[in-house]
Design a protein around this nucleic acid. Sequence first.
DNA 1: GTCATGGTTCGATTCTAGTTGAACGATCGT
DNA 2: ACGATCGTTCAACTAGAATCGAACCATGAC
Lengths: 107, 107
Amino acid sequence: MTSGRPLPHPARDDLELTQVLFALSDPVRLDLVRQLASGPQEMADCLAVEPPLPKSTKSHTMKVLREAGVIRNEPRGRNRIVSLRREDLDSAFPGLLDAVLDGEGTA
Amino acid sequence: MTSGRPLPHPARDDLELTQVLFALSDPVRLDLVRQLASGPQEMADCLAVEPPLPKSTKSHTMKVLREAGVIRNEPRGRNRIVSLRREDLDSAFPGLLDAVLDGEGTA
DNA sequence: GTCATGGTTCGATTCTAGTTGAACGATCGT
DNA sequence: ACGATCGTTCAACTAGAATCGAACCATGAC
């Protein structure tokens, strides 16, 4: 029941605004999205804080963002590459991502 | 413990992005915000659907949006006027509201 | 093949948010 | 002053989301 690896991602046309907004409404997830704004990252490097988040929690964080269509999570050898779905988001909700990424200081 | 009427609203500088995003991440609340985009409304007219929402539920919906700083809720005689805090939002998170209001068909 | 590594899934618990009736408050009309 | 109307607050319940350990799985290294 676990799985192999290629995880399901919603199609660009299936993105729902409320889901995206919800995914972004958590400080930790928003933070991650901002980190990804500068480019894809290996998942291992992603939420590297002290103390380190448990794997399952981290995985769950990714899941929420992935299922909302905010990030892409692809297998790469033994680890994973996480990236922002910038074009898809821009096409579905023009201006939204930029606006969110701009709100710098604000949590 | 109930109250009179002028309800507390967060100051423009205290708006938090995550709270705003969360407030907007619910279909009913988002819908209300879109209705308000065309101008203030009397609360009584606001979420007029069938079957009608119980008063307490409606009031709670308003509360979430108000506490996030998305709407203003002011006494007006025996009822209330609800309005979008457009300028405050635009100043705090430029482009955000427009982007959200644009996502028309998408729930 | 075997082992170490990185990540997902399951399941239990905890915490937070939504829902709604009932009680209360303020205001307006008479 | 009284009653009706409109909305908030309280409190109890339900539903949903976050947290995290344990089990599991693929891949890569040896």
